[in-house]
Amino acid sequence: MSPDAILLGDLGLNAAFLAVVFGAAVIITIVAAGLLIWSTKHPEEGDSHALAKYEKHWVVIILAIFVIFALSTISFLPYPYAHANVHPNLTIDVTGQQFAWTLCDAPYWANASTSLTNPSCFPNSNVTYIPIPVGDTVLFNVTSHDVTHGFGIYQCTDVGCTTAAILDQVQVMPGFYNSILVTFKTAGTYYIRCLEFCGYGHYTMFTQLNVTVTST
């Protein structure tokens, strides 16, 4: 069973939403700065330091903002162990290596050296042909053969893929397996890019992942 929402992005609260929040905060800050400058042009006569008496109110307000922010997002931790009730439809193992990705169907992922030669794997390829039915939740287990990498999944947001947004990401570290759960809600092209500097070829480290409309 696939859950409705694992990540905030499943609710539409992705980078675009965060950009709006940030933009609003910037506008409020600029307005507040303008008011502050204006206030110094109109100093109070008695120097009563009027605003200071609201310090306690302000403390309560910002404390409430941070607590509410943290608590309201806690259900969307991007860690598979935080979603024990979610059972992935598919498991894909991923190995990063300078400067390419290898994706394999499970259960071959347990032996990374085997996976590179396994027919279910797509080593160092620019396109990965693992069929992922729309709506499936996939568990990605990632590791590295050499240095640290970052595994970032980008989702095209239009037909020609002239824009794309981060769907999910996880760090890739040799000697460790990191995991993420991703639900692919729409068919189309996805891209996997390296999100951690891994050497001179870092910027060339990507592959394409196609999600298809198939019956499960």
Partner: peptide
């Protein structure tokens, strides 16, 4: 202030997913 606001977005695990290791 402005750097702090975008920092708060990155200091929250679920929202950091969309900004970690990006230009944000």
């Amino acid at each position: 202030i402005v750097g702090g606001v975008i920092g708060v977005e990155q200091g929250n695990i679920p929202t950091d997913v969309y900004e970690h290791n990006t230009y944000a």
